[in-house]
């Protein structure tokens, strides 16, 4: 790794040859799985997350609104070390609940009475930032499935290398740094839906720095995602005319 000599020197290169605020290559694929209501594959660098939605369940009698269920799972072949058995630890459960609570705010569940939306999220390859990738994959899968949402959800990871704020960390960087930062941004409302900061001590100025750089990178990721959706719609545009 090249040394980070100066604070905020934008030309400094990181471990895999990126600039401080440069994202890895993003690839979004919609409709990757058959026999689901909606599915999406979100890739950022080597991190791969697939999300799919099953929405045609017989309704639950209670309530006049739909119910959202999330199942988040990190496959045991995803990391560098193959783990034979991954238990669902508290951290994972908490994150699952986080996905649920963010998307419960955003999805217009009133429109789906007596129904149940089952979301399955699988991390196929984890090379840093799989949490934010999971949010993006879910967001794409819901859009692919035609579930009504108030807002466009995007997420990103950021961190501190020494004193310098960087975005979209890879696995080695995540190990080296001293804080873990996930931010979920709502594009229309320009609001932050969820922030997760995992560290011992952090300066307030550093925290503000992290916030601002990750909001900026959220916009970039959102653009990539929108392009993927637009391409998909244009490709299948003929189907609009037969209804």
């Amino acid at each position: 790794m090249l040394e980070l000599r100066h604070d905020n020197d934008q030309s400094t290169l990181r471990m895999n040859g990126r600039k401080l605020l440069e994202l890895r290559d993003i690839k979004c694929q919609l409709d990757v799985m058959k026999n689901t209501s909606g599915s999406a594959l979100f890739e950022i660098g080597n991190t791969k997350v697939v999300a799919f939605l099953q929405a045609q369940t017989l309704g639950v009698n209670q309530l006049n609104r739909g119910i959202l269920n999330v199942n988040f799972f990190v496959t045991n072949f995803s990391a560098i070390e193959h783990r034979a058995d991954i238990k669902k630890d508290i951290k994972m459960k908490e994150f699952t609940r986080m996905i649920k609570s963010v998307f419960e705010q955003v999805i217009l569940l009133d429109l789906y009475p007596r129904s149940q939306l089952d979301l399955q999220v699988f991390v196929l390859e984890a090379d840093g930032g799989y949490r934010s990738a999971a949010f993006n994959a879910v967001s794409l899968a819901l859009m692919d499935g035609g579930i009504a949402m108030k807002d466009f959800v995007v997420a990103t990871t950021a961190g501190l290398l020494g004193n310098v704020g960087v975005i979209d960390l890879i696995y080695q960087e995540e190990k080296k740094q001293n804080c873990e930062f996930v931010l979920v941004h709502l594009q229309k409302a320009q609001k932050i839906a969820y922030v997760n900061l995992n560290c011992n001590k952090i300066r307030l100025s550093d925290f503000e720095k992290l916030m601002s750089i990750s909001v900026d990178s959220c916009d970039k990721i959102a653009n990539e995602m929108k392009t993927a959706i637009r391409a998909k719609l244009v490709k299948n545009i003929n189907s609009f005319y037969f209804k």
Binding site: M143, D144, K232, K243
Partner: peptide
Amino acid sequence: IYASLAGIVHRIDKVICVKPLKTS
């Protein structure tokens, strides 16, 4: 009026709606 789905905008007289690609 904001969109809640990903799709094309479709207007019939006074009603504006968004047609999604996949629908149930």
